[in-house]
Simulated scan of single mutants.
Amino acid sequence: MDKFDQHIIEILRTNARTPVSDIAKAVNLSRSAVTARIKKLEQTQVIVGYRAEISVGTPEDEQPMICAYLALKFDTSSGTHQCADYARSLEDIQGVQWCHGISGETDLILYVAVPTMARLREIRDTIQTYPHLRQLVTHTVINEFFNHLTQKEG
């Protein structure tokens, strides 16, 4: 990856919808060269996707977003439980944003963002049906002071 690729990535991180012609001007390459570089960055998995950031709490949105961390602990005495299997099934639950396997007494930690407490309760109810689940603890987010994982324009 050279300085041109790095500059292209920087531009796309700021705004993934930047037109190729604007990127080409900024990096001083032709549009076709920039298009080829972006395609190569995607094929080599340097760029793994694009996303839309959704505004929460807009006037059309009466309900604020409810965010919580769920800590899951499984009974490992049977020897058949695999966190990766549970993680795959959790990925299909709408509202579960990410799932990490962690060290310590907790096996998995999830980050959930949903529009209502009722939806959070539905997610908890679904997870509580998982075999070998020993404990499910919910930590509701009260304040977010900063978040370096999401990039906001401003």
Rank of each mutant, 00 (worst) to 15 (best):
I127Y: 06
D85K: 15
V56R: 01
A36L: 09
T14W: 00
C83I: 07
T58Y: 07
T138K: 03
S78G: 08
A87P: 01
L29E: 05
H81D: 04
L29D: 00
L120N: 06
K3Q: 09
S21P: 00
P131T: 14
A52T: 13
F4I: 12
R134C: 07
C83W: 05
I142L: 07
I8D: 01
L133Q: 07
H148N: 12
S78M: 09
S55W: 01
E62W: 08
T76C: 00
H100S: 05
Q151I: 08
I66A: 04
T80N: 12
E60V: 08
Q63H: 13
E53H: 12
V112R: 11
Q128N: 14
R37G: 01
Y69I: 06
F4L: 07
Q6M: 08
T14G: 11
H148R: 12
E144A: 05
G57A: 10
I102W: 13
S21V: 03
Y69F: 14
E42Q: 13
H100K: 10
V56N: 01
A68C: 09
T129Y: 02
E122W: 11
T138W: 09
G104N: 11
L120W: 13
E53L: 14
F146N: 02
D107R: 06
S103Q: 08
A87T: 15
H148F: 14
Y69R: 08
K152C: 01
Q6N: 04
T14R: 11
D107M: 05
Y50P: 00
R121P: 00
M117D: 12
S103Y: 15
E91M: 11
V112T: 08
T126E: 14
K25V: 05
D125A: 14
R124P: 00
D125Q: 15
Y111W: 12
T140L: 09
I11Y: 03
